[in-house]
Design a protein around this nucleic acid. Structure first.
Lengths: 225, 225, 225, 225
DNA sequence: AATGAATGAGTTTTCATTCAT
DNA sequence: AATGAATGAAAACTCATTCAT
């Protein structure tokens, strides 16, 4: 092994794990597979990370860290609401675009039943959501309206994440050989856009539009006549 | 064992598996655990379902079947668009409410790397989406606008599913003892509504509002000047 | 496999484990080795005992159970002390002779650092030692004399156990090939008696003699003039 | 690290290993644990001792060396037998008191199945036992009486070792938290003497008494009429 | 139809040791 | 002289599945 490879062993493990977790889910991926993908000996995983779950922890930490950095300081009370929404959407899209795998693994709402992980996630999720709350009040939304808050909680993130999950899944599926040929045909029939800067420019714009007007419409809405 | 129990063995396995898959994910659940939860002998699983994966198949099949029945024939071209949206949302919410676990397992976009499952899902997902397409055209949306379609694809389902996943996760987490007391405190501090008929009446109303106006706003939107 | 073998699988594992633990100590024996010795698949161990440590638990339980049955009801206040000592020694020797391996594993004072085992042992050891206490008082020994009690605590058991450990070890060592030939020579030079009924008849007699007069002498002894 | 620490690294490993072996047994202790306890890098162990087993060898060597020095030249034919016994007991108690851990590891009769160790022990054990043999003849004991020799072989050492093992184990157990509270209560209920000079003065006296009169009684004993 | 026993390949993790520096 | 990285073998244990009954 060259020096380069040695230096990167930990990183290679991390990357391999991230990619595999994103594709199969944490539990479906074994250390063997990670090691093979990273081209290292199995024991290296424990050597560098201690336990398999610690790789997941590292991923979650990196993801939330990046996430909160991304959505930090997006406009203030002086920014016009629509502009603010546009900024938020743009930032989020950018974040998910750059960290698709990371986000898929960390944000997957599937409640993996590992207490440590649950705790870690909750720790991250608690007390950071100022930005959106600020936006809501700016739009005149009653943040004490439990129903409305239940409707809009996490909506934006969810929509974007879902987009990337779908895109990721489709790409992955197309690389795999499937039993039924008609599925392959179906997949290739679909019009798949080029997911380039231009696409996401428009995507953000439209999503911001949808979200902004959607929000506004429910501000006015009176739940009970 | 009574005869009643014997008769229900298969169902008990199915129910146990469903509940466990929803909580932990398919791969994280072992046959042992399912058998124990269902209070049957392990070999019963293979006996009734052949392979573990076949339970998942059964779940997916039941879910999609119910799903498409739920969203079938919701209004037609004569129904006013807003009313139609309201109907769709209502039906979807109802569906997810009644089949939370089922939907969590079947719709989880996490692409589990099991070809059979992927194929099965694709088979179900292809060619059934007439209802929404109809709605789009009724609203005047250009269904060939790739970007717009990427934005709205699956949005409604995703939002509702996410709501139920969040609700489910929170409930589950609260039942588990966690290391950090402050997490428990945090969880109990939150205002959690009673998720009753009344709540979902309002929830559907507001979500329909948001979705309808959101959609309308992007119909008008001109991506590129 | 014949039916006979099937039936005995658990027993074979138990026996193999007992024999290996006696020879090498619990920690030095692996499941692989037990399985091979018992001529079963490794997974059978977990299948029948759950965990490796549970075999040890079973051994300890069997040993203490037999032990307390063996030393139960050996004479009473009407039995002359010397006769009583003779009876106790005889019973103990008999017990150790019949359960050498069992006793070596269970009574090995080596404090294996497994809490469950420590607890189990203490549970057994507490509150069962009436027989010896009765004897002491009969002999006129002050059971509150801490020093004397420290001297005689467990002496008899220890001496006998040591005899069997030594005998066991020597036998085992002689079966193994050793590097240094002079050791083999040395070992074979030694006069090794036949450990038959006759031997243990005399052994018990002499040990009882030693123990009885030893005890008596310290009864009279005044620790501090 | 200071120079002092560096200098002592080997000693620290030795001490850590000794303490851990005494508590858990050789096989149950890993190099990792030794290294951690000694606060050195794992590779230091191999660096200083070659193999893990060589630490054990060092321990055994040190122990036997000290042991034989301790019991060397304790009285001669002119010393009155009872006085001689008293001296031997005193010396042995002193030795075990000062080298409890060492003796526990080295003298543990548990036959660890490592040929090198077995050989080493046998090498030490052979041909050094003049002192006791001398005593026996002085007392008029027939050293050719195989049964008698089997009874008294190692008795003294065994008794004392057992005392220290018990003391050691109890102390260790009390430091550990156990599941069952009643065990802790039981342990603390016991009257535990202060194991100081005064205690061992008396302990040696009483044990010498027991041993001397015990031996004498069997000298007179005629095995078979 | 139903099941307890059995299995071999699988899991994660730890082992003592070696190596290049 | 000293060490962090690396390793393959082994550790205990679990896996989904099969099979004889």
């Amino acid at each position: 092994m060259t020096k380069k490879e040695k230096k990167d062993a930990k990183q290679r493990i991390y990357d391999a794990a991230l990619s595999l977790f994103a594709r199969k889910g944490y539990s479906a991926v074994g250390c063997r597979e990670i090691a093979k993908t990273a081209n290292v000996n199995i024991s290296m995983i424990c050597y560098y990370f201690g336990k398999k779950v610690d790789i997941l922890k590292a991923i979650i930490n990196e993801c939330y860290d990046k996430y909160y950095h991304a959505v930090l300081n997006i406009g203030d009370e002086n920014t016009p609401p629509q502009e603010r929404v546009r900024l938020i959407v743009r930032k989020l899209v950018e974040f998910f675009r750059e960290n698709t795998g990371l986000a898929m693994v960390a944000f997957n709402t599937l409640p993996i039943d590992i207490p440590e992980i649950v705790d870690l996630k909750i720790k991250w999720m608690s007390g950071k959501s100022k930005a959106t709350i600020e936006l809501y009040t700016q739009l005149g939304l009653d943040t004490n309206d439990v129903v409305k808050m239940n409707v809009i909680r996490g909506v934006l993130t969810t929509i974007i994440l879902e987009h990337f999950q779908f895109r990721y899944a489709r790409k992955h599926i197309m690389q795999v050989t499937h039993q039924s040929k008609y599925i392959r045909e179906f997949l290739t029939q679909e019009i798949i856009p080029e997911y380039n800067d231009d696409f996401y420019e428009q995507y953000s714009e439209i999503l911001a539009e949808l979200y902004f007007h959607g929000l506004n419409s429910i501000v006015a809405h009176n739940s009970k006549p």
